[in-house]
Simulated scan of single mutants.
Amino acid sequence: MGEHTVKLYTRQNDKTLYQLERDGRIINQRVYVELHFGDIAPLFMESYDWFTKEASKRLPKPEDVHAPIWCSISVENCLKPIPGTVVYCLEVPEDQVIYFDDVKWDYVLNRIYLPKDEEDKKAYRQHLKDIGVENGFEFLSGKYKGMFPEEEARIRESWKRAFEIDNWTIFNVCGNIWEIRKEWVKKIVHPGEKIE
């Protein structure tokens, strides 16, 4: 293991405190993600499962982990602790972190094509016109579902760009980790306390 660590911050349900005490680690259960999204969970879970699968190709995940834990890379952009939550201030070995672009993640969540750049965006718009499709939202969940398999493949392939960071700022870059290990936790911030 390299000595390089990075500081990450993540807000979690305060029930995770027991998990940390009991197991010496915290992992995110898939069911928590489902609960968080309520009725719209089925749509979103497909995206989260895609993320989990894709991210684990980049950094193998422990057997028992089925959902990501997402962290802010800065105090400024970290969600503040509210009642029922705590913020974990972590120092994580760099080789345990997969960075991704949260703005690009929205494309995955919306199940639409993620363009490489402005030029690609224009080209894709033109492409949709050429095939007579007015709405790129409808390929994976909508009236075109199943009708354009090659488009579906193109869209899914484009999502991998979420792991390519072109623009490194604290507002769009997030860090994914598979677990929070006790030795990584430098500080636990409760509601009403300052993060740093």
Results as ranks from 00 to 15, higher is better:
1 M>Q: 12
2 G>I: 09
2 G>A: 05
4 H>Q: 07
7 K>Q: 09
8 L>T: 11
9 Y>N: 02
12 Q>G: 05
13 N>D: 10
16 T>C: 04
16 T>K: 07
18 Y>L: 10
20 L>Q: 03
26 I>D: 02
28 N>F: 00
29 Q>I: 06
31 V>Q: 08
32 Y>K: 07
32 Y>W: 13
34 E>P: 00
36 H>T: 00
37 F>Q: 01
38 G>H: 00
42 P>V: 11
42 P>L: 04
44 F>W: 00
46 E>S: 13
47 S>W: 01
49 D>I: 13
50 W>A: 03
50 W>T: 02
52 T>V: 08
52 T>E: 01
54 E>T: 06
54 E>V: 01
55 A>T: 04
55 A>M: 01
56 S>Q: 09
57 K>N: 15
57 K>F: 04
57 K>I: 05
58 R>K: 14
59 L>N: 05
59 L>F: 02
59 L>Q: 07
60 P>M: 02
61 K>R: 15
65 V>T: 14
66 H>Q: 12
67 A>R: 00
67 A>C: 06
68 P>W: 00
70 W>H: 06
71 C>N: 15
71 C>K: 03
72 S>G: 12
73 I>N: 02
74 S>N: 09
75 V>W: 06
76 E>V: 09
76 E>F: 14
78 C>N: 08
78 C>Q: 06
79 L>I: 10
79 L>M: 15
80 K>D: 05
80 K>Y: 05
80 K>E: 13
82 I>G: 07
82 I>R: 06
85 T>G: 01
91 E>W: 12
91 E>P: 06
93 P>T: 07
93 P>G: 14
94 E>R: 15
98 I>C: 09
99 Y>N: 04
100 F>T: 05
100 F>Y: 03
102 D>N: 13
104 K>Y: 03
104 K>G: 04
104 K>Q: 06
109 L>A: 04
109 L>T: 03
110 N>G: 04
111 R>Q: 13
112 I>H: 04
113 Y>C: 08
114 L>D: 00
116 K>R: 09
117 D>W: 12
122 K>V: 14
123 A>I: 09
124 Y>S: 12
125 R>K: 05
126 Q>R: 08
126 Q>W: 03
127 H>Q: 11
127 H>F: 13
131 I>G: 15
131 I>P: 10
134 E>Y: 11
134 E>M: 11
134 E>S: 09
137 F>P: 00
138 E>R: 05
138 E>N: 10
139 F>Y: 14
141 S>T: 12
141 S>R: 09
143 K>P: 04
143 K>N: 06
153 A>M: 15
155 I>P: 02
158 S>H: 05
159 W>M: 02
159 W>E: 02
159 W>I: 01
160 K>P: 01
161 R>L: 05
163 F>E: 08
165 I>A: 02
167 N>I: 12
170 I>W: 11
171 F>Y: 15
171 F>M: 10
171 F>G: 07
172 N>V: 08
172 N>W: 13
173 V>G: 03
174 C>S: 05
174 C>Q: 07
175 G>R: 02
176 N>R: 03
179 E>C: 10
179 E>W: 07
182 K>Q: 12
183 E>Y: 04
184 W>M: 08
186 K>E: 14
187 K>P: 15
188 I>R: 13
190 H>A: 08
190 H>R: 11
191 P>S: 08
193 E>C: 06
194 K>C: 15
